[in-house]
Design a protein around this nucleic acid. Structure first.
Length: 242
DNA sequence: CCGAAGACCTGCTGGC
DNA sequence: TGCCAGCAGGTCTTCG
């Protein structure tokens, strides 16, 4: 499930619900996100981290289900329910988040164009799709949004970074910002398991142009699916030429 | 250095 | 109906 827009949606909702409350006697002062990790900060400067991986859900005042892995109870009686069908997600308490934050590249919504260009130059031989999904390169983009971003930029997913024209680089950059922001506005993509912090589905699947789609919305060509680095890449072979 | 493949897990779908 | 393969939004590690 969760890529940047989904985790960001949960973060924004949880801020409204849990900041100021106490968990195990410790006061919550902040809810942050780094890459796809949700971070709850306490007043004693310790933190609680969550990674939802593919099927994790974090639901405020949600009901226990057979996939509930943990329930966090706040001092006012409200609670945060962590569900995860595939058990790949995790949570952990840390004293300090510096080490974790350092593992990732710049935030996809924070990076500026010059930095993006510079980083691309450092990875000339990388295929663009796996590169966009590499959290050490840029943090926050996963399989759905990498496909949508490259369609928006009309760039083939197997394109090598060094072969991109400056126009294409600019378009990829703009589409990263545009698509991630639009997805946040629509509370993310509920393709299968994703639910926001209120247990609601995100709307953005309606706007997917290539991910799990049949026809290109621009030219009606059949969308192609290939494996790149073990993940499904979706693209329009006519609009996104190699 | 890079990339591919397998591992971690469960559940759903489609084909035979 | 049953069984098996393939698929799924993410990272890790291992190996070539």
């Amino acid at each position: 499930m969760p890529e940047l827009p989904e985790v960001e949606t949960i973060r924004r909702q949880l801020i409204q619900e849990i900041v100021g409350k106490k968990l195990n006697g410790k006061k919550i002062v902040r809810v942050r996100r780094r890459a796809k990790i949700l971070i709850i900060d306490f007043s004693d400067s310790s933190s609680l981290l969550f990674h939802l991986k593919l099927t994790g859900q974090l639901i405020f005042n949600g009901k226990r289900t057979k996939h509930t892995r943990k329930v966090f109870k706040f001092s006012d009686g409200s609670q945060l329910v962590f569900n995860d069908v595939r058990k790949l997600g995790w949570w952990k308490k840390v004293k300090d988040t510096k080490k974790i934050e350092k593992q990732f590249g710049p935030e996809a919504l924070g990076i500026d164009f010059e930095t993006f260009k510079t980083l691309l130059k450092k990875r000339p031989k990388s295929k663009i799709k796996p590169l966009l999904m590499d959290q050490k390169f840029i943090a926050g983009i996963g399989n759905i949004y990498s496909n949508e971003i490259l369609f928006g930029a009309k760039v083939h997913p197997l394109c090598l970074a060094k072969t991109l024209t400056s126009k294409e680089i600019q378009s990829i950059f703009q589409n990263i910002k545009k698509i991630l922001k639009a997805a946040i506005r629509h509370q993310g993509s509920s393709f299968e398991y994703y639910l926001d912090a209120y247990g609601q589905k995100g709307d953005y699947v309606k706007y997917h142009k290539v991910y799990h789609q049949d026809k290109c919305p621009v030219c009606r060509t059949d969308i192609k699916r290939i494996k790149i680095g073990g993940r499904s890449a979706y693209f329009c072979p006519k609009c996104q030429k190699l």
